[in-house]
Design a protein around this nucleic acid. Structure first.
Lengths: 253, 253
DNA sequence: CGAGCAATTGAGTCGCATCAAGCTAGGTGG
DNA sequence: CCACCTAGCTTGATGCGACTCAATTGCTCG
């Protein structure tokens, strides 16, 4: 345990203040959270399915997937987490139930104990509110994920995932290019497709001039086209930045 | 707006105290929330997709579905809400983003204004905590839903949904029989199947002696068998009742 | 008693899974 | 510096689960 990584949490605070109002004091209190630096190798599950945990994991660098699993071991990725995300903030309030976490590439985590998070949240109601709201953004992404898996064909599913990640990497506006170190097998686990079909569908997107996914990088060639192909509506990701939504509900006067 | 329906909120409090500790004062404060009695006809969307709302809806009686939609109007049901649920509690903290709500049969709602919920949450941190935890249970159900849709065949998907609803109607232990007034078309919207295939798959479950779904009622003939068929693991629904998990995080001493 | 929606059944088709090879590139050791 | 190894990518052939289209049979209710 050390406290040298205070600055490393800055992206997390940025993420929170995009959707919630936090005073300088509250922001500093978050930055001052003690954290434990942990390095995780690619393909290692650092939170197992249905395991009860005592820490939440901030992603400092790398890429993480949340997953569920069917009886026969088939994995279903339910969310990707990029640097700056607190992958399982929710576990602080409910220490079980949202699946396992696995590192898709070599990843650096900052683990923060639930008790520290709880103490902070009880001390600053506005921080609790920001945490709660952040959890609900994650839930909104989950809901969109269901619609994507359930109602789109292979091409649209992949396009949708690429759109979502572009917005999340781009912090508001879509990134034209971003690192995405996943295998086609793992993309298949996310989109409920086999790696074979992912391969053919990605080739399709490339030949259509929409996007190129290669060697752990995504290049978006035609954003509008990709949005159309994925039937992607960014409302659910960006709505909170609209004025008036950044309220201090719990810390109301 | 009236306040005569205080007792009607009792199931909501019951639901909360199954997972969080609330004092008598806090419970009474929730029961005292002013609510607006609203009756909704079957098949009516009372919260439209991506609409910003000012109230949360408690289900007093009936059945409600949360849904997303693809471009061509194909619906995807992402959750069912039974009487006792606050269908969109999340909207109090984030007034947009978790899909629309539609009544599957004639339904009675109690609408509670966000500002009242916010005031209550700011006044009683333990209530805010209970609300937050309840939202995370919903999120856990969403995650399980993704794995179900993405990794199971038609038979298992339907069995899984029947298991989930049995536990939620049974409040902890599985109900052997419960009302479920949905058409096969709507079951298809939930399981990402066509009504034709739902029909054939339900017939399969019936012929296997697992469950009988007919005329808005579910009769479970073989619970263990149905659990196996749906690869259903109830952990995600019941874990909070384990001792030690009912903490008062925000209201810590 | 007819209107209308839901359930049921059948036949034909298609998207994606499955199975099975190669292929490629980066890494490793002799 | 080359031979090998392995993980991931690519491609082809074949089969099945679920969709589609279409018709018929209940139900329920005015």
């Amino acid at each position: 345990m050390n406290t040298e990584h205070q600055n490393a949490l800055a992206p997390f605070v940025d993420r929170l203040i995009a959707r919630s109002v936090l005073t300088a004091t509250e922001q500093e209190a978050i930055l001052a959270l003690p954290s434990q630096h942990v390095e995780v190798r690619a393909r290692h599950d650092f939170v197992r399915l249905r395991e009860e945990v005592t820490h939440s994991c901030f992603i400092a660098s790398g890429l993480v997937a949340r997953f569920g699993q069917s009886r026969d071991g088939l994995r279903q990725i339910t969310a990707f987490h990029v640097p700056g995300d607190m992958a399982d903030l929710h576990s602080a309030i409910r220490p079980i139930g949202l699946g396992g976490l696995t590192a898709l590439c070599d990843t650096v985590l900052l683990k923060i104990s639930h008790s520290d998070i709880r103490t902070l949240a009880s001390q600053y109601p506005a921080v609790a509110e920001a945490f709660w709201r952040d959890c609900m953004l994650d839930a909104a992404i989950l809901m969109e994920w269901i619609t994507n898996i359930g109602r789109h064909d292979a091409r649209a599913r992949l396009a949708h995932i690429l759109c979502e990640m572009a917005l999340r990497y781009g912090r508001g506006c879509a990134a034209a290019s971003y690192p995405f170190p996943v295998t086609q097998e793992q993309l298949g686990d996310a989109a409920s497709l086999t790696s074979v079909h992912v391969n053919r569908s990605l080739r399709g997107l490339r030949e259509e001039g929409l996007a190129d996914v290669r060697k752990g990088k995504v290049e978006i060639m035609d954003w509008e086209g990709l949005v159309r192909a994925g039937e992607f509506d960014p409302t659910y990701l960006v709505a909170d930045t609209a004025e008036g939504r950044q309220k201090r509900l719990l810390a109301a006067v």
